[in-house]
Amino acid sequence: MRTLLILAVLLLAHAGAQSSAPTCRLTMTPVSVLGASYKVAFRVDPTCPPTHVFQVRKSSTISTRASGAPYQPIRPDGSAAFHYAWSWPVSRARVAVPGNELFTLFTWEWQVYDEARWNPITRRYGLWTRVAQAGRP
């Protein structure tokens, strides 16, 4: 019983230490609306170190693998048109997303690669998640 109590205290102390760590977040803000699309601007939290780089991509919300589609369109798609890239780097110093790709259809979403999150499908760390949005288009 005493060992169980000590383990519980250590576990709670560890969980408290993890939750108080500063977070480094990427935020997407819709800047303007043009027909069925909107233009976005990315903002990296000032608490992020200058060397931290986020990897972002656009993904279709209509045709998704989760709903059984054989192919889920993403941009960049690793083709020669995108110089064989599968994502664009975004940091406090630079946003490498081409200007024309900042215009996003309402049926697409921006995603960021989170290497610390567990992916149950691949059984490895690393998961594409939706970029936090500030404001509405």
Rank of each mutant, 00 (worst) to 15 (best):
T27Q: 03
C48F: 11
S20I: 06
W88I: 08
L11N: 03
T122H: 08
A85I: 10
L4E: 14
Y71K: 05
D77N: 07
R136P: 05
V53I: 13
G16W: 11
E115T: 10
P98D: 11
G99M: 09
I62R: 06
Y113D: 12
P30V: 04
V97Y: 06
R75A: 13
A132I: 06
T29G: 00
T107Y: 04
G68W: 06
D77A: 13
A85R: 14
L5V: 12
D45Y: 01
L7S: 11
E101R: 03
W108D: 15
S60C: 08
T129K: 11
P50M: 01
E109G: 02
V53T: 05
Q72C: 05
R136G: 03
P98K: 15
W88D: 10
F42I: 06
S37I: 02
V95G: 01
V56K: 01
T51D: 13
A69S: 12
T47E: 15
I121K: 13
S67R: 04
S60N: 13
L26Y: 04
H14G: 02
N119V: 15
F103N: 12
V131Y: 01
R117Y: 13
A36G: 00
S37E: 14
S67P: 10
P98G: 10
I62F: 07
D114T: 04
A66S: 14
P49W: 03
R124T: 15
I121C: 04
W88R: 03
S91P: 02
A69N: 10
H83Q: 15
I62Q: 12
L7T: 04
W88K: 01
L26W: 03
K58H: 09
A13K: 00
Q72G: 01
D45N: 04
A41C: 06
G35I: 05
Y71P: 06
R57H: 09
S37G: 05
T122E: 14
L7E: 10
A132R: 04
Q111C: 05
G35F: 09
D45T: 02
S59G: 02
T107G: 05
G135V: 11
V33E: 11
Q18R: 04
S19C: 01
L7N: 02
W128V: 07
A81S: 14
A13S: 08
N100Q: 13
L5K: 05
L5N: 09
A81H: 15
H14Q: 12
C48E: 07
V9E: 06
A81K: 08
T3I: 11
R2T: 12
T64G: 06
P98S: 08
K58Q: 15
S91A: 09
I121N: 11
F103T: 07
L102R: 08
A132D: 14
Q18K: 11
P50H: 01
Y84G: 02
K58D: 05
P89M: 08
A81G: 11
G99L: 11
V33T: 14
S91Q: 10
W86D: 15
Y84M: 05
W118N: 12
